[in-house]
Simulated scan of single mutants.
Amino acid sequence: MESQAENLAAVLHIKDIIRIEKRPIPEPGENEVQIRMSCVGICGSDVHYVQYGYTGRSVVKKPMVLGHEGAGIITKLGPGVKNLKIGDRVAIEPNSPCRKCNYCKLGRYNLCTDVSYCGAPPHDGSLSYYYKHPADFCFKLPDNVSMEEGALIQPLSVGVQACFKAEVTLGSVVLITGAGPIGLVTLVAAKAMGASKVIITDIIAHRLQVAKTFGADFTLQVSQNDIVEQQVEKIHSMLNEAPDISIDCCGLEETVKLCLQATRSGGKLVVVGLAGREMTLELGKGIFREVDVRGVFRFCNVYPASLSLIASQKVDLKSLITHNFHLKDTEKAIQTAISKEGNPIKIMLHCN
C-alpha cells in the first residue's frame, strides 16, 4: 500500500456536521501498532451519532472521528509488539479494555467499566488514513480474506456473540427479528452453528429477499401495526412449532414483545439491539413459562471464531456490501444510509 504524508479523517463535530480534516499521524505507544486503514464499514450507531448526536447512553460532546468496523495494514510497531510485523493485513477489534478490573480478569472485557471503544464518545474511531490500536486486539488476516471481509468481522462478531449467548446448537429452531446487517450476520452465525430452522422478520421486503440468500428457511414481512399475537401465530404456523431461541436485533418494544411471546416455554430470548428508550413489557408472558431473557453488549472473545468463519469461505459476507464510497465522501455515504436510497444494507468506506 502506498504511504500517505497526511492523515485525513472523517470527523463528526455535532449532529449533522461531518468534516474531512487533517489530523496528526498517530504514533504507536507501548504494545500498540500504527495501521494504514483500508476499509471501514458504516454501522447503525455511526448513522445515529450523525442524526441525533447520541446512541443509547453515548453522547457526542466534542469532535470525534467516526468508524469502528475496520481493517488495514500495519505500518509501524510500538515497543513490545511481538505478535505482528510491518505489512501484516489485520482486522481491528475495536476494544481497548483496562485489563485490570474484575470483568477483564474474568475474561468479560466487554463489560469493563474503563474500556475505550473505538468510535464511541469520547474516543476517536478508525475512519481515517492512519489509526493506532493495541496490538493484541488486531487479528492477522489470512491471504484468502479481503480487506472488506476484514472490516465485516466486527458486525459478524455481534451475531456470533448473540448466538453463543443463546447457546445455538445442532437442531436449534431460531427466530430473528430484524433483517438489517446485524440480523443477517446473526442468521449466518446461527446456521453455521447448526440451527435447523431459522425464521427472520422485517418490515422491508427487500431485506427479507436478501435474508433468503443467506440461508433463512422462512421469512415474514411484518408491519408496525400488526397485532403481536397474530404475528406469533404466523411464526408458529410457518415453523410448525415454537422457536427454541429468539434473537431480537431491533431493540424495539414491539419486537421484544414478539420474541418474548413467540419463544417456547423453557426457551431463550436474547436481546441484541436497544433503541435507547424505555420499554413496557408483560414479563409474565415469558417468566411464568421460564423463558430465559439474556442481554448482549457488543462482543467478547469471538473475533477468532468470526475470522475462522469468514476464512472457511462457507459464507460470502461481501455480498452484504451494497454501496462503496471513499473516505472523502463520508457525508454522502451517511446520507445514503439515512435516505435508504438504493436499498443499502452495508456501506463500505475506502481509505486508499
Score class of each variant (00 low, 15 high):
Leu283Ile: 14
Ser128Gly: 09
Lys318Thr: 08
Ile321Trp: 09
Thr177Ile: 02
Leu239His: 01
Glu149Cys: 03
Ile345Gln: 00
Gln231Lys: 06
Lys61Ile: 15
Gly183Asn: 03
Cys250Trp: 02
Arg23Cys: 14
Glu341Lys: 15
Arg19Asn: 08
Gly342Phe: 12
Ile73Leu: 01
Met279Phe: 10
Ala71Leu: 02
Val296Asn: 01
Val145Glu: 02
Glu6Cys: 10
Tyr109Met: 06
Ala9Asp: 06
Lys100Gln: 15
Met238Tyr: 12
Ile86Ser: 08
Asp16Gly: 10
Val173Gln: 01
Gly178Pro: 03
Leu127Gln: 09
Glu167Ser: 15
Ile347Leu: 12
Val315Arg: 01
Ser45Val: 06
Lys132Tyr: 12
Ala71Glu: 00
Leu281Arg: 09
Cys118Ile: 03
Gly67Met: 03
Glu32Tyr: 12
Val145Tyr: 03
Gln154Val: 10
Val11Phe: 03
Asp136Gln: 04
Cys250Leu: 15
Arg19Ala: 12
Ala205Met: 07
Phe214Met: 07
Met279Asp: 08
Asn31Gly: 15
Lys332Phe: 12
Ile227Glu: 08
Gln221Trp: 07
Tyr117Asn: 09
Ile18Gln: 05
Arg298Gly: 09
Val90Phe: 05
Tyr49Met: 04
Asn110Gln: 02
Thr336Cys: 07
Cys39Thr: 04
Tyr303Gly: 06
Pro121Cys: 11
Ser172Cys: 11
Gln231Trp: 11
Gly286Val: 04
Glu253Val: 06
Leu187Val: 11
His123Trp: 13
Met1Lys: 09
Asp16Glu: 14
Gly180Tyr: 08
Phe164His: 10
Pro94Lys: 13
Met1Thr: 15
Tyr52His: 15
Thr322Gln: 06
Glu69Pro: 01
Asn240Thr: 06
Phe218Asn: 04
Arg298Lys: 13
Gly29Cys: 11
Phe218Ser: 06
His68Cys: 05
Ile17Gln: 12
Gly183Leu: 04
Gly342Arg: 14
Ile235Lys: 03
Cys249Tyr: 06
Ala190Glu: 02
Val33His: 00
Val168Trp: 06
Arg289Asp: 03
Gly159Asp: 05
Ala192Arg: 02
Phe164Trp: 07
Gly150Thr: 12
Pro63Leu: 11
Lys314Ile: 05
Asp88Ala: 10
Leu152Asn: 14
Ile42Trp: 01
Ala120Val: 13
Cys118Val: 07
Lys257Ile: 00
Glu6Tyr: 12
Ile25Asp: 02
Ile42Gln: 03
Ile338Ala: 07
Ile204Gln: 08
Lys285Val: 15
Arg108Ile: 10
Gly194Ala: 09
Ala190Arg: 00
Glu30Leu: 11
Glu148Lys: 06
Val158Thr: 11
Ile200Met: 00
Asn110Thr: 00
Gly178Arg: 00
Gly178Lys: 02
Val188Ser: 03
Gly284Lys: 13
Arg23Glu: 14
Thr263His: 03
Glu229Thr: 14
Glu32Gly: 00
Lys15Gln: 06
Gln313Thr: 13
Phe137Met: 09
Leu307Gly: 05
Lys314Pro: 04
Thr330Asn: 04
Gly286His: 00
Gln161Glu: 09
Val47His: 10
Ile200Gln: 01
Cys112Gln: 05
Asp46Cys: 11
Gly107Lys: 01
Ser58Gln: 14
